[in-house]
Design a protein around this nucleic acid. Structure first.
Lengths: 197, 197
DNA sequence: TTACCTACTTCCTTACTAGTAAGTAAGGAC
DNA sequence: GTCCTTACTTACTAGTAAGGAAGTAGGTAA
């Protein structure tokens, strides 16, 4: 059993990742939880507080997961695969759109507090991609000729778009996209059986 | 000088491509044009009428442009480059986000009429990408090993994400992304001077 | 001249939004 | 038993959204 606060964060995150910042209201959350609108305000006086807290949680989770993997000596491919699996899991759990993608359309009108968290998460993810790609390139797990940072950015963009498209066209879109990202990194799927690493 | 109707469509499209379906109101348009809210309702009784009309215009423009290029015997690379240039031009004109990307976050709550236009545009673009890629692959302009449809989908996703990211991080993001798409099609930029075709 | 159309404006309704103020019920600390 | 905190509820404000009804001013056609 989880606390009201945890439930607010949970449903808030789901709503945010399905409908964006301006696409959900405190009413959506309070109705789902069977409490009153003002109860949500009790925990998060302003909407920006709620969304900033959601993003802090996401960033913390990301930091912990990547640190753990990095510490336990995972290969670059394993680390990148973790991210792909994480995306697929989130999608399967009904969070259609990635956190970064869910705020971009509303970005300009967003409170500064939220903008800041959004940019921090984006920087975190891009820096991690770059790091993993660099390692993988150096030890021969990946093969590509473009600058690492540019490739990192492109992966983020492709996943962002794929996740959004997948919210309309279904999971297969996201799966195909992941497969192509691997392909462009010189990390081929074998048509059947195990992967080549 | 353009008619009120044309101006409504123009600003409506800009607003749509910057803030998404739920991110702008008739008030934004009427204030910009110095008319009253209800005047916009005069031309487009419901918001869905306005947005569906905007999409019809975009689809028509796309159909005309692609037909013209196809008719005048452009190479696959030239045709694809047209699309990239079109994206950059739209971005430069202040339409931050591509039409497809601008509706995805709000997609589920969209009126059917708008959903339909959105899906039609997506199908148009994907079919055109597939056609161009197929031609280019057959005549050696492109080189890649994945299914054409999958590659077409990935290009759409990457551009969609790149355009969104570029709305925060600037034009360079979109340029880098286009460069990488070309690279992944086996269509290398030479570091300086003319392209290889 | 009458009738009608187009392009609006004024005025309004209904619904929902974020957010606030004040009150209450339950539980622990002392 | 009283005090204080937590977790809410009730009741409200102010703003904005889409959208509808009715009226008007100007042009055009018969």
């Amino acid at each position: 059993m989880s606390t009201t606060n945890q439930q607010i964060l949970h449903y808030g995150r789901n709503l945010l990742q399905c409908r964006g910042y301006n696409g959900f209201s405190y009413r959506d959350i309070s109705q789902k939880l069977g409490i009153k609108n003002a109860a949500v305000h009790h925990y998060y006086p302003q909407k920006e507080d709620l969304v900033a807290t959601i993003f802090e949680g996401i960033r913390q989770q990301f930091a912990e997961d990547t640190a753990r993997m990095s510490g336990s000596g995972c290969s670059a491919r394993e680390q990148l695969q973790y991210f792909f699996d994480f995306m697929l899991k989130e999608f399967d759990e009904g969070r259609n759109i990635c956190p970064i993608g869910s705020l971009i359309v509303d970005f300009e009108e967003l409170p500064d507090k939220v903008k800041e968290q959004h940019l921090l998460l984006m920087d975190d993810v891009l820096a991690w991609f770059s790091e993993v790609l660099k390692t993988g390139l150096e030890n021969g797990e990946f093969k590509f000729s473009d600058p690492v940072d540019t490739r990192a950015e492109a992966i983020l963009e492709t996943l962002l778009g794929a996740r959004q498209l997948a919210s309309i066209k279904g999971r297969g879109t996201l799966e195909r996209s992941i497969s192509l990202i691997r392909s462009d990194l010189g990390w081929k799927d074998r048509p059947s059986g195990k992967r080549t690493y």
